[in-house]
């Protein structure tokens, strides 16, 4: 069970918010880029044969002598794509379980808001992209949950390809959530592409041991993804410099996300991370 009933009941009381107009395939609760059938007046235009004569504004016609019809806003659903990084680097400490639960939390929040949700893994060079079905309503939650539970970490990461896939999806301008440690090449382009495709959130999952490593002495560090080995002498000074680089990296991700129109939330894989992340989402206006 990825989400406890108590957390799900809290999520039931929240709704996913969108920034700006969206373009969804189905009607929903979010203002759409197109005109539609809602009760919110949008504009007038000249009548053309074939238009629904029930929309003719007879008052204007009588006063101005011009036949105009009333146009109304459309409200679409917010299609949400959740991209879960399943690379080997996520298999460190509690990073991947945390990523699973964060993905589940965001997905459930969208389902509870009546949105369509699709969960997909981030493909790698040697791993295929796995994506679940588009689902809607909380009744589909077991499908999402079982899909997330079926994911296993391993292989490499190609964030750029995953983001490109989202951006290339035609006809839909929704939201996307990237759950990843972003410790891979091309993370900058991935964020840019996600920003182009719509609003979204970057949930950067970091292990506490990545923030503050407890290594010392002469070591050979091996990258679990690339198998690259780096001999280092982990001294006090080296650890201090590493911490500075980590902080700089997180700041750089946050700035890049902000410039791309995305929200950035740092999720440290430790107890209480779901509550902290949810609070951050609420405070940033992603959920309300």
């Amino acid at each position: 069970m990825l989400l406890e009933p108590e957390l799900r009941s809290r999520l039931d009381r929240l709704a996913l918010a969108s920034r700006g107009r969206i373009r969804g395939a189905w009607g929903g609760r979010h203002r759409s880029r197109r005109l539609g059938e809602s009760l919110d007046f949008a504009d007038y235009r000249e009548y053309f044969p074939g238009d629904d004569y029930r929309r003719i504004d007879y008052n204007l016609w009588a006063r101005l002598g011009v036949v105009l019809i009333r146009l109304f806003e459309a409200e679409d659903e917010l299609p949400l794509r959740v991209l879960v990084d399943t690379s080997q680097s996520m298999d460190f400490g509690d990073k991947f379980p945390t990523a699973q639960r964060l993905s589940a939390m965001v997905a459930y929040l969208a389902l509870a808001s009546g949105e369509r949700v699709q969960v997909a893994s981030v493909p790698g060079e040697d791993s295929p992209r796995i994506q679940g079905p588009w689902v809607r309503h909380t009744g589909s939650w077991p499908v999402v949950e079982s899909f997330l539970e079926s994911l296993q970490p391993g292989g490499g990461t190609d964030l750029r390809a995953a983001a490109n896939h989202v951006a290339a999806a035609t006809g839909l301008r929704g939201a996307s959530v990237l759950v990843s440690d972003l410790l891979t090449e091309g993370w900058e382009q991935a964020i840019d592409l996600l920003g182009v495709s719509g609003s979204g959130v970057v949930l950067q999952v970091i292990s506490p041991l990545e923030l503050d490593p407890d290594l010392t002495g002469d070591l050979t560090l091996r990258d679990v993804e690339t198998r690259q080995e780096v001999p280092v002498s982990v001294s006090d000074g080296a650890v201090d410099r590493y911490r500075e680089r980590v902080r700089g990296f997180i700041d750089e991700v946050a700035n890049r996300s902000r410039r791309s129109g995305l929200d950035h939330v740092l999720a440290v894989a430790q107890p209480g991370v779901l509550d902290q992340t949810l609070a951050a989402l609420v405070s940033s206006g992603v959920a309300r």
Binding site: D181, E210, L221, R222, V230, V232, V234, R241, Y242
Partner: peptide, 22 residues
Amino acid sequence: RSRRQRFEVPSVMLWSGEEEFV
């Protein structure tokens, strides 16, 4: 030269700059 222990880390990206020639 001491025998180095090998440790796996999620990424060596953030350790760049600490490499030493061995």
